[in-house]
Amino acid sequence: MADKILVLGVGNVLLSDEGAGVRAVEQLQRSYVFSPQVELIDGGTMGLDLLGYLDDTSHLFIIDAIVSSKPPGSVVIEKLLDPPAYFRQKISPHQIGISELLAVAAMQDCLPPSITLFGIVPLDLSTGIEMSPMVNAAVEQVVLAVVEELDLMGVKVGAASC
């Protein structure tokens, strides 16, 4: 069986640019057709609930808004070679986010062997369901980058016929 690839977009769509990861997944679903080995998930603001989706995943793509010193609208694509480096100190109790999800996956020995982060630096985190234009453009950039990455891995992606 072909390697399972999980494209996980996370974020809160009620907080403008914070929802960039989810918007990217929505756009991927709208614009392309994927082979069955690729699963796209709108992870919203969920944390531990997503654990089950990591099972048997060989490649995990995480699309998320990130905190960065780079200017808003920047795109940061990185292989997470050392996921524990992303584990953060946290006491905020209902805040099991992606870092904790990966930490728990590592403890349960179900951490996907390859993880790529497609990070988008947000501009506007105010309440609202529209993204800022520069982050909108960054989302489009990420969508293309995901397709390109899949292509490099030899995974076929077709255009959606509408």
Partner: peptide
Amino acid sequence: ACAIHLLDP
């Protein structure tokens, strides 16, 4: 804390 979570690399 629920409504926001950002990855912080």
